[in-house]
Design a protein around this nucleic acid. Structure first.
Lengths: 203, 203
DNA sequence: AAATTCATGTTGCTGTTGACAACATAGAGC
DNA sequence: GCTCTATGTTGTCAACAGCAACATGAATTT
Protein backbone atom coordinates (compact mmCIF):
# COMPACT_ATOMS: atom_id res chain seq x y z
CA UNK A 1 0.00 0.00 0.00
CA UNK A 2 1.40 3.39 -1.01
CA UNK A 3 1.62 6.32 1.34
CA UNK A 4 -1.68 8.19 1.64
CA UNK A 5 -0.32 11.59 2.53
CA UNK A 6 3.14 13.14 2.34
CA UNK A 7 3.37 13.94 6.03
CA UNK A 8 2.20 10.58 7.28
CA UNK A 9 4.53 8.70 9.58
CA UNK A 10 7.27 6.68 7.90
CA UNK A 11 7.00 2.92 8.07
CA UNK A 12 10.08 2.77 10.24
CA UNK A 13 10.16 5.02 13.23
CA UNK A 14 13.90 5.56 13.21
CA UNK A 15 14.71 5.54 16.88
CA UNK A 16 11.96 3.62 18.54
CA UNK A 17 14.15 2.00 21.14
CA UNK A 18 15.39 5.32 22.47
CA UNK A 19 11.91 6.86 22.29
CA UNK A 20 10.41 3.96 24.21
CA UNK A 21 12.95 4.34 26.98
CA UNK A 22 12.44 8.10 27.20
CA UNK A 23 8.67 7.85 27.36
CA UNK A 24 8.84 5.02 29.86
CA UNK A 25 11.09 7.14 32.07
CA UNK A 26 8.55 9.93 32.02
CA UNK A 27 5.72 7.55 32.86
CA UNK A 28 7.65 6.00 35.74
CA UNK A 29 8.40 9.37 37.30
CA UNK A 30 4.87 10.64 36.78
CA UNK A 31 2.73 7.59 37.50
CA UNK A 32 4.96 4.81 38.77
CA UNK A 33 6.36 1.59 37.36
CA UNK A 34 2.99 -0.11 37.32
CA UNK A 35 1.72 2.47 34.85
CA UNK A 36 4.24 1.47 32.19
CA UNK A 37 2.41 -0.41 29.45
CA UNK A 38 3.98 -1.43 26.16
CA UNK A 39 0.74 -0.84 24.31
CA UNK A 40 0.15 2.57 25.85
CA UNK A 41 3.70 3.59 24.97
CA UNK A 42 3.17 2.40 21.41
CA UNK A 43 -0.08 4.37 21.22
CA UNK A 44 1.55 7.53 22.51
CA UNK A 45 4.48 7.24 20.15
CA UNK A 46 2.25 6.42 17.22
CA UNK A 47 3.40 2.95 16.29
CA UNK A 48 1.51 -0.30 16.25
CA UNK A 49 0.93 -2.21 19.44
CA UNK A 50 3.51 -4.87 18.69
CA UNK A 51 6.29 -2.60 17.50
CA UNK A 52 7.92 -2.30 20.94
CA UNK A 53 8.39 -6.07 21.02
CA UNK A 54 11.03 -5.72 18.28
CA UNK A 55 13.20 -3.86 20.77
CA UNK A 56 12.16 -5.40 24.07
CA UNK A 57 10.78 -8.91 24.00
CA UNK A 58 8.80 -8.35 27.18
CA UNK A 59 7.68 -5.52 29.37
CA UNK A 60 10.10 -6.69 32.03
CA UNK A 61 12.94 -6.48 29.53
CA UNK A 62 12.20 -2.80 28.90
CA UNK A 63 12.19 -2.04 32.61
CA UNK A 64 15.32 -4.10 33.19
CA UNK A 65 17.09 -2.26 30.37
CA UNK A 66 16.24 1.07 31.95
CA UNK A 67 17.39 -0.16 35.34
CA UNK A 68 20.61 -1.32 33.78
CA UNK A 69 21.26 2.06 32.17
CA UNK A 70 20.86 3.51 35.65
CA UNK A 71 23.39 1.16 37.20
CA UNK A 72 25.79 1.89 34.38
CA UNK A 73 25.45 5.61 35.00
CA UNK A 74 26.05 4.97 38.69
CA UNK A 75 29.22 3.02 37.99
CA UNK A 76 30.47 5.69 35.58
CA UNK A 77 29.81 8.38 38.13
CA UNK A 78 31.71 6.41 40.73
CA UNK A 79 34.56 5.91 38.26
CA UNK A 80 34.87 9.64 37.70
CA UNK A 81 34.85 10.39 41.38
CA UNK A 82 37.51 7.81 42.07
CA UNK A 83 39.71 8.94 39.19
CA UNK A 84 40.96 12.00 41.08
CA UNK A 85 44.51 11.07 42.16
CA UNK A 86 44.64 13.74 44.85
CA UNK A 87 41.96 12.15 46.97
CA UNK A 88 42.81 10.07 49.98
CA UNK A 89 41.19 6.69 50.39
CA UNK A 90 38.94 8.23 53.00
CA UNK A 91 37.91 11.06 50.69
CA UNK A 92 37.21 8.58 47.92
CA UNK A 93 34.97 6.57 50.19
CA UNK A 94 33.12 9.63 51.30
CA UNK A 95 32.72 10.84 47.70
CA UNK A 96 31.48 7.50 46.43
CA UNK A 97 28.96 7.26 49.23
CA UNK A 98 27.64 10.74 48.57
CA UNK A 99 27.60 9.89 44.88
CA UNK A 100 25.01 7.20 45.46
CA UNK A 101 22.57 9.56 47.14
CA UNK A 102 23.13 12.16 44.43
CA UNK A 103 22.56 9.54 41.78
CA UNK A 104 19.28 8.44 43.39
CA UNK A 105 18.07 12.02 43.34
CA UNK A 106 19.25 12.58 39.76
CA UNK A 107 17.83 9.33 38.38
CA UNK A 108 14.66 8.77 40.40
CA UNK A 109 13.11 6.37 37.87
CA UNK A 110 16.16 4.15 37.72
CA UNK A 111 16.47 4.24 41.47
CA UNK A 112 12.86 3.18 41.78
CA UNK A 113 13.42 0.35 39.34
CA UNK A 114 16.41 -1.17 41.06
CA UNK A 115 14.51 -1.12 44.35
CA UNK A 116 11.53 -2.81 42.74
CA UNK A 117 11.44 -6.53 43.39
CA UNK A 118 9.10 -7.19 40.51
CA UNK A 119 11.60 -5.60 38.15
CA UNK A 120 14.78 -7.01 39.63
CA UNK A 121 13.25 -10.46 39.76
CA UNK A 122 13.37 -10.46 35.95
CA UNK A 123 16.78 -8.85 35.71
CA UNK A 124 19.43 -10.68 33.76
CA UNK A 125 22.71 -11.81 35.24
CA UNK A 126 24.62 -8.86 33.78
CA UNK A 127 22.49 -6.36 35.65
CA UNK A 128 22.87 -8.16 38.95
CA UNK A 129 26.57 -8.49 38.27
CA UNK A 130 26.94 -4.74 37.72
CA UNK A 131 25.04 -3.99 40.90
CA UNK A 132 27.18 -6.46 42.72
CA UNK A 133 30.35 -4.93 41.25
CA UNK A 134 29.30 -1.56 42.60
CA UNK A 135 28.81 -3.01 46.07
CA UNK A 136 32.17 -4.77 46.00
CA UNK A 137 33.87 -1.55 44.89
CA UNK A 138 32.29 0.23 47.83
CA UNK A 139 33.46 -2.49 50.16
CA UNK A 140 36.98 -2.32 48.76
CA UNK A 141 37.11 1.42 49.38
CA UNK A 142 36.10 0.85 52.96
CA UNK A 143 38.91 -1.65 53.32
CA UNK A 144 41.40 0.90 51.97
CA UNK A 145 40.15 3.65 54.24
CA UNK A 146 40.49 1.26 57.15
CA UNK A 147 44.02 0.39 56.08
CA UNK A 148 44.73 4.11 56.24
CA UNK A 149 43.50 4.31 59.78
CA UNK A 150 39.83 5.20 59.53
CA UNK A 151 37.78 2.93 61.78
CA UNK A 152 40.52 0.40 61.59
CA UNK A 153 39.39 -1.26 64.79
CA UNK A 154 35.98 -2.17 63.28
CA UNK A 155 35.04 -5.18 61.20
CA UNK A 156 34.92 -4.24 57.51
CA UNK A 157 31.60 -5.91 56.94
CA UNK A 158 30.10 -4.12 59.89
CA UNK A 159 31.20 -0.76 58.52
CA UNK A 160 29.87 -1.79 55.15
CA UNK A 161 26.46 -2.59 56.59
CA UNK A 162 26.43 0.70 58.45
CA UNK A 163 27.33 2.77 55.39
CA UNK A 164 25.09 0.84 53.03
CA UNK A 165 22.09 1.11 55.31
CA UNK A 166 22.61 4.81 55.90
CA UNK A 167 23.14 5.45 52.20
CA UNK A 168 20.17 3.39 51.04
CA UNK A 169 18.02 5.12 53.63
CA UNK A 170 19.13 8.60 52.66
CA UNK A 171 18.55 7.80 48.99
CA UNK A 172 15.05 6.66 49.92
CA UNK A 173 14.30 9.81 51.88
CA UNK A 174 15.78 11.96 49.15
CA UNK A 175 13.93 10.50 46.21
CA UNK A 176 10.88 8.54 47.26
CA UNK A 177 7.70 10.62 47.19
CA UNK A 178 5.99 8.34 49.69
CA UNK A 179 8.57 9.00 52.36
CA UNK A 180 8.51 12.70 51.62
CA UNK A 181 4.75 12.69 52.11
CA UNK A 182 4.60 10.65 55.28
CA UNK A 183 7.62 11.94 57.14
CA UNK A 184 7.60 15.23 59.00
CA UNK A 185 9.79 18.08 57.78
CA UNK A 186 11.77 18.62 54.62
CA UNK A 187 15.01 17.04 53.52
CA UNK A 188 17.54 19.42 52.01
CA UNK A 189 20.76 18.50 50.29
CA UNK A 190 22.63 20.35 53.02
CA UNK A 191 21.02 18.11 55.59
CA UNK A 192 22.14 15.05 53.68
CA UNK A 193 25.67 16.43 53.64
CA UNK A 194 25.48 17.14 57.33
CA UNK A 195 24.38 13.62 58.13
CA UNK A 196 27.14 12.14 56.00
CA UNK A 197 29.62 14.49 57.64
CA UNK A 198 28.58 13.35 61.07
CA UNK A 199 29.04 9.79 60.02
CA UNK A 200 32.39 10.15 58.29
CA UNK A 201 34.10 12.82 60.33
CA UNK A 202 33.70 10.97 63.54
CA UNK A 203 36.30 8.56 64.63
CA UNK B 1 -30.23 -25.67 42.10
CA UNK B 2 -29.75 -28.30 44.78
CA UNK B 3 -26.37 -29.47 45.95
CA UNK B 4 -24.94 -32.19 43.70
CA UNK B 5 -22.76 -33.88 46.30
CA UNK B 6 -22.61 -33.71 50.08
CA UNK B 7 -19.01 -32.61 50.23
CA UNK B 8 -19.21 -29.91 47.56
CA UNK B 9 -18.24 -26.42 48.57
CA UNK B 10 -20.91 -24.37 50.31
CA UNK B 11 -22.30 -21.41 48.42
CA UNK B 12 -20.81 -19.05 50.95
CA UNK B 13 -17.16 -19.48 51.74
CA UNK B 14 -17.37 -18.36 55.32
CA UNK B 15 -14.18 -16.38 55.72
CA UNK B 16 -13.20 -15.33 52.26
CA UNK B 17 -11.79 -11.99 53.31
CA UNK B 18 -9.33 -13.56 55.72
CA UNK B 19 -8.45 -16.32 53.25
CA UNK B 20 -7.79 -13.81 50.49
CA UNK B 21 -5.42 -11.86 52.69
CA UNK B 22 -3.56 -14.99 53.80
CA UNK B 23 -3.12 -16.29 50.27
CA UNK B 24 -2.08 -12.89 49.01
CA UNK B 25 0.56 -12.67 51.72
CA UNK B 26 1.97 -16.01 50.62
CA UNK B 27 2.02 -14.91 46.98
CA UNK B 28 3.74 -11.64 47.81
CA UNK B 29 6.48 -13.34 49.76
CA UNK B 30 6.94 -16.05 47.16
CA UNK B 31 6.51 -14.19 43.89
CA UNK B 32 6.24 -10.49 44.61
CA UNK B 33 3.45 -7.93 44.65
CA UNK B 34 3.06 -8.00 40.89
CA UNK B 35 2.08 -11.65 41.03
CA UNK B 36 -1.01 -10.94 43.13
CA UNK B 37 -4.09 -11.41 40.95
CA UNK B 38 -7.64 -11.35 42.26
CA UNK B 39 -8.69 -13.98 39.76
CA UNK B 40 -5.78 -16.28 40.49
CA UNK B 41 -6.51 -15.99 44.20
CA UNK B 42 -10.15 -16.79 43.56
CA UNK B 43 -9.14 -19.82 41.49
CA UNK B 44 -6.79 -21.10 44.17
CA UNK B 45 -9.36 -20.66 46.90
CA UNK B 46 -12.08 -22.21 44.81
CA UNK B 47 -14.55 -19.37 44.47
CA UNK B 48 -15.76 -17.56 41.40
CA UNK B 49 -13.63 -14.87 39.80
CA UNK B 50 -15.78 -12.02 41.05
CA UNK B 51 -16.16 -13.18 44.63
CA UNK B 52 -13.11 -11.25 45.91
CA UNK B 53 -14.72 -8.02 44.72
CA UNK B 54 -17.30 -8.34 47.49
CA UNK B 55 -14.53 -7.84 50.03
CA UNK B 56 -12.09 -5.66 48.12
CA UNK B 57 -13.51 -3.47 45.38
CA UNK B 58 -10.18 -3.39 43.56
CA UNK B 59 -6.89 -5.18 43.56
CA UNK B 60 -5.28 -2.07 45.00
CA UNK B 61 -7.75 -2.12 47.86
CA UNK B 62 -6.65 -5.63 48.81
CA UNK B 63 -3.00 -4.65 48.79
CA UNK B 64 -3.71 -1.46 50.69
CA UNK B 65 -5.65 -3.39 53.32
CA UNK B 66 -2.71 -5.73 53.83
CA UNK B 67 -0.33 -2.81 54.03
CA UNK B 68 -2.58 -1.22 56.59
CA UNK B 69 -2.65 -4.34 58.75
CA UNK B 70 1.13 -4.17 58.69
CA UNK B 71 1.26 -0.58 59.84
CA UNK B 72 -1.25 -1.37 62.56
CA UNK B 73 0.93 -4.22 63.79
CA UNK B 74 3.92 -1.89 63.73
CA UNK B 75 2.11 0.69 65.82
CA UNK B 76 0.94 -1.95 68.27
CA UNK B 77 4.44 -3.30 68.61
CA UNK B 78 5.74 0.20 69.28
CA UNK B 79 3.01 0.73 71.82
CA UNK B 80 4.03 -2.37 73.74
CA UNK B 81 7.68 -1.42 73.74
CA UNK B 82 6.91 2.05 74.98
CA UNK B 83 4.55 0.84 77.70
CA UNK B 84 7.39 -0.31 79.95
CA UNK B 85 7.58 2.37 82.67
CA UNK B 86 11.13 1.45 83.66
CA UNK B 87 12.64 2.53 80.38
CA UNK B 88 14.38 5.85 80.03
CA UNK B 89 13.49 8.05 77.08
CA UNK B 90 16.74 6.99 75.47
CA UNK B 91 15.99 3.31 75.95
CA UNK B 92 12.52 3.81 74.53
CA UNK B 93 13.95 5.46 71.46
CA UNK B 94 16.45 2.71 70.97
CA UNK B 95 13.77 0.05 71.44
CA UNK B 96 11.36 1.67 69.02
CA UNK B 97 14.05 2.00 66.39
CA UNK B 98 15.06 -1.62 66.73
CA UNK B 99 11.39 -2.53 66.65
CA UNK B 100 11.06 -1.20 63.14
CA UNK B 101 13.83 -3.41 61.79
CA UNK B 102 12.42 -6.40 63.64
CA UNK B 103 9.00 -5.67 62.22
CA UNK B 104 10.35 -5.47 58.68
CA UNK B 105 11.96 -8.87 59.10
CA UNK B 106 8.85 -10.36 60.72
CA UNK B 107 6.39 -8.93 58.18
CA UNK B 108 8.32 -8.93 54.91
CA UNK B 109 5.22 -8.75 52.71
CA UNK B 110 3.78 -5.75 54.54
CA UNK B 111 7.17 -4.09 54.53
CA UNK B 112 7.40 -4.59 50.79
CA UNK B 113 3.94 -3.16 50.31
CA UNK B 114 4.50 0.04 52.22
CA UNK B 115 7.68 0.62 50.24
CA UNK B 116 5.86 0.06 46.97
CA UNK B 117 4.87 3.28 45.27
CA UNK B 118 2.26 1.61 43.12
CA UNK B 119 0.54 0.35 46.25
CA UNK B 120 0.92 3.45 48.39
CA UNK B 121 -0.26 5.62 45.54
CA UNK B 122 -3.70 4.06 45.99
CA UNK B 123 -3.59 4.08 49.76
CA UNK B 124 -6.42 5.81 51.55
CA UNK B 125 -5.93 8.71 53.92
CA UNK B 126 -6.18 6.51 57.02
CA UNK B 127 -3.21 4.42 55.99
CA UNK B 128 -1.06 7.44 55.29
CA UNK B 129 -2.21 8.94 58.54
CA UNK B 130 -1.17 5.87 60.52
CA UNK B 131 2.23 5.82 58.85
CA UNK B 132 2.59 9.48 59.59
CA UNK B 133 1.57 8.93 63.20
CA UNK B 134 4.33 6.37 63.58
CA UNK B 135 6.89 8.83 62.23
CA UNK B 136 5.71 11.59 64.52
CA UNK B 137 5.88 9.25 67.50
CA UNK B 138 9.44 8.41 66.58
CA UNK B 139 10.27 12.08 66.28
CA UNK B 140 8.70 12.82 69.65
CA UNK B 141 10.82 10.14 71.30
CA UNK B 142 13.92 11.70 69.82
CA UNK B 143 12.87 15.02 71.29
CA UNK B 144 12.46 13.44 74.72
CA UNK B 145 15.80 11.69 74.53
CA UNK B 146 17.38 15.00 73.58
CA UNK B 147 15.66 16.72 76.48
CA UNK B 148 17.29 14.08 78.70
CA UNK B 149 20.70 14.95 77.35
CA UNK B 150 21.26 12.58 74.43
CA UNK B 151 22.55 14.50 71.42
CA UNK B 152 21.01 17.60 72.86
CA UNK B 153 23.30 19.83 70.85
CA UNK B 154 21.94 18.49 67.53
CA UNK B 155 18.89 19.63 65.59
CA UNK B 156 16.00 17.24 66.21
CA UNK B 157 15.14 16.96 62.56
CA UNK B 158 18.71 16.14 61.69
CA UNK B 159 18.78 13.31 64.22
CA UNK B 160 15.45 12.16 62.89
CA UNK B 161 16.80 12.00 59.35
CA UNK B 162 19.85 10.12 60.54
CA UNK B 163 17.87 7.54 62.50
CA UNK B 164 15.18 7.14 59.87
CA UNK B 165 17.69 6.65 57.07
CA UNK B 166 19.71 4.14 59.06
CA UNK B 167 16.59 2.29 60.13
CA UNK B 168 15.01 2.21 56.68
CA UNK B 169 18.30 1.01 55.24
CA UNK B 170 18.76 -1.73 57.81
CA UNK B 171 15.18 -2.87 57.26
CA UNK B 172 15.93 -3.06 53.56
CA UNK B 173 19.08 -5.07 54.05
CA UNK B 174 17.36 -7.33 56.55
CA UNK B 175 14.29 -8.16 54.51
CA UNK B 176 14.75 -7.41 50.83
CA UNK B 177 15.92 -10.47 48.88
CA UNK B 178 17.42 -8.29 46.15
CA UNK B 179 19.80 -6.62 48.52
CA UNK B 180 20.69 -9.90 50.11
CA UNK B 181 21.54 -11.28 46.69
CA UNK B 182 23.57 -8.37 45.39
CA UNK B 183 25.44 -7.35 48.50
CA UNK B 184 28.47 -9.21 49.74
CA UNK B 185 28.35 -11.08 53.03
CA UNK B 186 25.51 -12.02 55.30
CA UNK B 187 23.50 -9.88 57.66
CA UNK B 188 22.87 -11.36 61.06
CA UNK B 189 20.58 -10.00 63.71
CA UNK B 190 23.62 -9.54 65.96
CA UNK B 191 25.16 -7.33 63.33
CA UNK B 192 22.04 -5.21 63.20
CA UNK B 193 22.20 -4.85 66.97
CA UNK B 194 25.85 -3.94 66.78
CA UNK B 195 25.22 -1.24 64.19
CA UNK B 196 22.38 0.21 66.23
CA UNK B 197 24.57 0.07 69.33
CA UNK B 198 27.31 2.00 67.61
CA UNK B 199 24.80 4.61 66.60
CA UNK B 200 23.03 5.01 69.92
CA UNK B 201 25.79 4.46 72.43
CA UNK B 202 27.99 7.17 71.00
CA UNK B 203 27.58 10.74 72.04
C1' DA C 1 -43.05 -19.61 61.83
C1' DA C 2 -43.15 -16.98 57.55
C1' DA C 3 -41.54 -13.25 55.05
C1' DT C 4 -38.16 -10.10 53.93
C1' DT C 5 -33.74 -8.08 53.75
C1' DC C 6 -29.10 -8.09 52.69
C1' DA C 7 -24.38 -9.70 52.75
C1' DT C 8 -22.07 -12.80 49.98
C1' DG C 9 -21.24 -15.56 45.91
C1' DT C 10 -22.00 -16.64 40.65
C1' DT C 11 -22.35 -15.99 35.73
C1' DG C 12 -21.57 -13.33 31.94
C1' DC C 13 -19.84 -9.36 29.73
C1' DT C 14 -16.45 -5.41 28.24
C1' DG C 15 -12.06 -3.32 27.50
C1' DT C 16 -7.07 -3.54 28.26
C1' DT C 17 -2.90 -5.84 28.30
C1' DG C 18 1.25 -9.03 27.21
C1' DA C 19 2.60 -12.21 24.15
C1' DC C 20 2.89 -14.62 19.82
C1' DA C 21 2.62 -15.58 14.68
C1' DA C 22 2.32 -14.37 9.96
C1' DC C 23 3.00 -10.85 6.90
C1' DA C 24 4.78 -6.07 5.01
C1' DT C 25 8.32 -2.65 4.21
C1' DA C 26 12.54 -0.62 3.32
C1' DG C 27 17.31 -0.01 3.94
C1' DA C 28 22.01 -2.27 3.83
C1' DG C 29 25.16 -5.10 1.67
C1' DC C 30 26.38 -8.01 -2.03
C1' DG D 1 19.48 -4.82 -9.39
C1' DC D 2 18.72 -8.68 -5.86
C1' DT D 3 18.54 -10.59 -1.53
C1' DC D 4 18.84 -10.47 3.40
C1' DT D 5 17.46 -8.71 7.53
C1' DA D 6 16.02 -5.36 10.87
C1' DT D 7 11.95 -3.17 11.89
C1' DG D 8 7.03 -2.34 11.83
C1' DT D 9 1.91 -4.06 11.09
C1' DT D 10 -2.19 -6.81 11.53
C1' DG D 11 -4.57 -10.35 13.66
C1' DT D 12 -5.25 -13.41 17.37
C1' DC D 13 -5.35 -15.49 22.10
C1' DA D 14 -5.50 -15.89 27.07
C1' DA D 15 -5.46 -13.50 31.50
C1' DC D 16 -6.85 -9.84 33.92
C1' DA D 17 -9.68 -5.86 36.37
C1' DG D 18 -13.88 -4.24 36.75
C1' DC D 19 -18.91 -4.03 36.26
C1' DA D 20 -23.87 -5.65 36.10
C1' DA D 21 -27.53 -8.82 36.71
C1' DC D 22 -28.84 -12.69 39.08
C1' DA D 23 -28.66 -16.54 42.92
C1' DT D 24 -28.34 -18.12 47.61
C1' DG D 25 -29.03 -18.51 52.25
C1' DA D 26 -28.51 -16.62 56.85
C1' DA D 27 -30.11 -13.01 59.83
C1' DT D 28 -33.76 -9.98 61.03
C1' DT D 29 -38.23 -8.49 61.22
C1' DT D 30 -43.04 -9.15 61.56
Amino acid sequence: MSRAAQDSAPYHHGDLRRTLIDRALAVIVADGVEAVSLRALARDIGVSHAAPMRHFPTRSALLAAIAKSGITALLESAGKRLADPDLSSFQKLRSMTEGYVDWAAAYPAQHMLIRNQDVMRHADRELLEEASAYARLHEELIRQAQADGWRSEQETHEVFVEITALTAGLALLASDPIYRTVLPGELSTEEISTVLDRFFLRG
